[in-house]
């Protein structure tokens, strides 16, 4: 249900809500970026994956 009335609380908390939104957006962007980086780095677990390199065993990078 959409909020119909503009309550005084909405303007009072606008700054907080905008900042919270930006932080959550940033968090999503960061997790996405890390996922892309991790997926494109070589790994040694799945030998059928295109980024499989046996020599990287145990390396976190």
């Amino acid at each position: 249900m959409a909020i119909q009335r503009e309550h005084e609380l909405h303007s009072r908390r606008r700054g907080r809500n905008v900042a919270m939104g930006l932080i959550l957006g940033g968090l999503v962007a960061m997790i996405f970026a890390v996922s892309i980086v991790k997926l494109s780095q070589s790994q040694s677990e799945d030998s059928t994956a295109p980024n499989y390199v046996p020599a990287t065993a145990g390396a976190s990078e």
């Binding site: 960061m30 970026a33 890390v34 892309i36 980086v37 991790k38 780095q41 990078e61």
Partner: peptide, 14 residues
């Protein structure tokens, strides 16, 4: 001695 990818470095420091 181990280089870290800049994105991983940024996220980790954060």
């Amino acid at each position: 001695p181990v280089p870290v990818h800049p994105v991983i470095a940024f996220a980790s420091i954060l």
